[in-house]
Simulated assay, not measured.
Amino acid sequence: MHPDDWHLTHDLDAFLDRAGDFLASRPAMHTVPLTLADGLRRRGLHAFGDKDPVFGVLEKDGAVGAVFLRTPPYWINVTPLTEEQADALAVRLASAGHEVPGVSGASDTAAAFAEAWQRRTGAEPQLWQRQRLYRLGELTIPEPVPEGAPRVAGAADRDRLARWFEEFGESVGEHNLQDSGAWADARISYGGATFWETPDGTPVSMAGATPQVAGQVRVAPVYTPAPLRGRGYAGAATAEVSRAARASGAREVLLFTALANPTSNGLYQRIGYRPVADYAVYRFGE
């Protein structure tokens, strides 16, 4: 494995021409790169920040073996890698002078890259979060269903969506680096956020979903303001978004949870989600 087997580009179309079939071959394990690339295609290359994104394709003898994406200021997202592939990527990025604030991927892959990046640059990795990827099996509506009904968010809900997106980031310990208003606009444009409302029409919880790409939809984010938790609102909203995703024809309905949150892990399994793989996020330096 040679570092030059990793081909880097800032060109989204060139990246997808080279790696599109590979990404679509495993839509569950490739859900993050698929949805990030789709978001850039829909919203423009600077949808997540001012700097150009970076894409990488590991290709040898005409066969694609792995990819990564980085949408600054966020970390890189990588598909599953061997230790040798992870080391080659670290060498390639370091030698090209790329900034890498962290890595997200399947647990073994993220750990292998974090160790390789430390060897090559001296940056000390810090495990920030362990996650679990789930896939929807048989959908089960959690009982008892709270009073109220779901409603897809529209233009009049922009301020609430933006505010709840900010609050969601704070609740999981991550400051949202992208513009919350632009995020809300993007979700409204394709019906990608659903409220659970009480009978008087007051939104009390939110569940979002990504657009369908390669037959997969990922549920995210799910948020209920702190004073309203524990009443079944998040479960009802998540079940509705999951139902709608499956009704739209999605073959894979997915979501991530933080392993440190037993409440959400238990809830999603009661709805019918089953584990696929564990993931990890490492940050480098401060």
Rank of each mutant, 00 (worst) to 15 (best):
R135H: 11
W164P: 04
G208A: 10
F168T: 03
G208P: 11
L177W: 05
V219S: 05
E197F: 00
G173A: 08
L177T: 09
E174P: 02
A209E: 06
E170C: 04
E143Y: 10
G191E: 12
L133W: 00
F168G: 01
P203W: 10
E197S: 07
A162V: 02
Q216N: 15
V217Q: 14
V152R: 09
V172F: 09
A162D: 06
P199M: 06
E166K: 05
A220P: 00
E147T: 06
N176C: 09
P199N: 02
E174H: 12
F195C: 06
G215P: 08
T198W: 05
L133E: 05
L177E: 15
E143N: 07
A156E: 14
R132T: 08
Q212T: 15
I188C: 08
L133K: 04
G173Y: 11
E138A: 15
S171L: 04
A207P: 04
D159T: 12
E167L: 11
P150T: 06
T140H: 13
V145G: 07
G192Q: 03
L136D: 10
F168P: 01
G208T: 10
Q216E: 15
G191L: 06
S171E: 04
G169K: 02
P150H: 05
E138I: 12
D179K: 08
V219W: 01
R158C: 01
S205D: 07
E174R: 13
R163T: 07
P142G: 14
R132C: 04
A182W: 01
S171C: 00
G148L: 11
P203G: 09
D157F: 08
L161N: 02
W183Y: 13
S171A: 14
S205N: 07
P199D: 11
N176W: 00
D185T: 13
L177C: 04
D159F: 09
E143W: 10
E147S: 09
R187D: 07
W196Y: 13
A209H: 14
D159C: 02
R135D: 08
S205W: 06
E166F: 02
Q131F: 08
D157V: 09
Y190Q: 14
F195Y: 14
R132H: 03
G154S: 02
A149F: 15
E138M: 13
G137W: 01
S180D: 11
R218H: 10
P211F: 06
T198I: 10
G191S: 08
H175Q: 15
G154D: 10
G215Q: 10
E138L: 11
R218L: 07
V172L: 11
V217H: 07
R218M: 13
R158T: 13
R132W: 01
Y190D: 15
P142V: 14
A153T: 06
S180P: 03
A155H: 15
T202K: 08
G208V: 09
G181P: 02
P211V: 08
P199S: 10
H175P: 07
T194N: 06
R187S: 13
Y190T: 09
G201V: 04
G137S: 12
A184K: 09
T198Q: 12
G192C: 05
L177Y: 07
L139C: 06
